[in-house]
Design a binder for these strands. Structure first.
Lengths: 200, 200
DNA sequence: TCAGAAATATGACTTTTGTCACCTCATTTT
DNA sequence: AAAATGAGGTGACAAAAGTCATATTTCTGA
């Protein structure tokens, strides 16, 4: 019997996946969570065999949970299940060493198979991810990401200045560099590009 | 037997909902679609009793499909099923006269009940929507929305000018007005606000 | 048909952005 | 210890963005 845990913040999908996987002969859903914090706590306590993990969840995101599980060398195998084929996410997931990375755009039938494969020690990745532009690395440094995140919210140079304790010249230099790296025309376009790629 | 149609662009959720609802004694899923165009065509052909409709789908979005069904006075009752509690969406859905508006954040068990209620002639709305800030109207005119959509992509005033055949002064006036209406500091913040509210 | 909205445009002006060359001061590398 | 690296900073300049008062031109309802 494969003991499953599911962490997913969209209640309806969580419920649906739970019910369906529970119908499989060889699987049992032993726990569910709607956010990363709950998920982390429950997984450490319940020690499931496999955990399906969404990325974009409140409090702690799925990658952060996976990271923490790895740090504590938990035995639970993690399969990331997300809507987004964002380069940044996939890159990070691979670095963390997750056992699977599937897109919610895949067939539901493939999910049970993937879980069995992972239990058998294999790793499974959505074919969409294996080749493709998806493997682009995030060209922004952490500082640049932080600045662009603020700029994306419409904060002015001056506001960014006082949040990060930098001079306005420095902030403008950073933004100029970001614009170059992303091949954008201005901070707004840079933000749109980075958001689409999952880089901020 | 309630004959159901489901339109949802996230394949996994589509599959999961389909399987689960098909298990209900009194329901039968007679068709599914991954985008609005397919959905519209199939619904007109199959004439289901109730149709579950996601909003954000490729080609035609769910609200557009619902609008077209209403225009052709199709008998199919529409239940909008979406992630987003965006004021603009809900407002539009009510105007179109849909029979239900549920959030994907609701329990899956409520879904089958909602479908039965709609079949019985009732209308069902997620409780989250009934009160709340959700009812804020979109303060932007269609032209303003169009301009802000372009600005949100990082297009410059000059680029917007040549896409919409307006003078640069006019575009700047529009943006100035948008910034006022949304109580923002600049076009980027205006875009962030409008995106969050579902206004563009 | 006439008054009043909309939609579009101008121009003058201030502020904010973006660019670039160059500077300072620690921390590493070699 | 000298050189390289990297985070942070200056200042000057041009280009873009934002503000506002004031047109002009359609439309449109009474």
């Amino acid at each position: 019997m494969i003991r499953l845990f599911i962490a997913e913040d969209q209640r309806m999908l969580l419920g649906a996946l739970g019910s369906l996987l529970d119908l499989e002969e060889d699987m049992e859903v032993i726990g569910q969570a709607l956010n990363g914090e709950e998920a982390l706590a429950s997984i450490l306590k319940l020690e499931p065999d496999v955990c399906l993990m969404d990325i974009e969840m409140p409090v702690l995101n799925g990658l952060e949970v996976a990271e923490e599980l790895a740090r504590r060398s938990a035995s639970c195998k993690v399969i990331i299940l997300t809507t987004f084929a964002r380069p940044g996410y996939f890159e990070r997931a691979v670095k963390i060493g997750v056992h699977g990375y599937l897109l919610k755009d895949g067939e539901i039938d493939e999910l049970a198979d993937a879980i069995r494969k992972v239990m058998a020690g294999k790793r499974v990745f959505s074919p969409e991810l294996t080749f493709d532009v998806i493997r682009e690395e995030n060209p922004l440094t952490p500082k640049e990401q932080e600045i662009l995140r603020l700029a994306a919210l419409g904060k002015t140079t001056k506001e960014i200045t006082s949040e990060l304790f930098l001079s306005s010249g420095t902030v403008r230099n950073y933004i100029s560099e970001i614009i170059h790296k992303l091949d954008a025309k201005n901070r707004t376009e840079a933000a749109a590009i980075a958001e689409k790629k999952g880089w901020i």
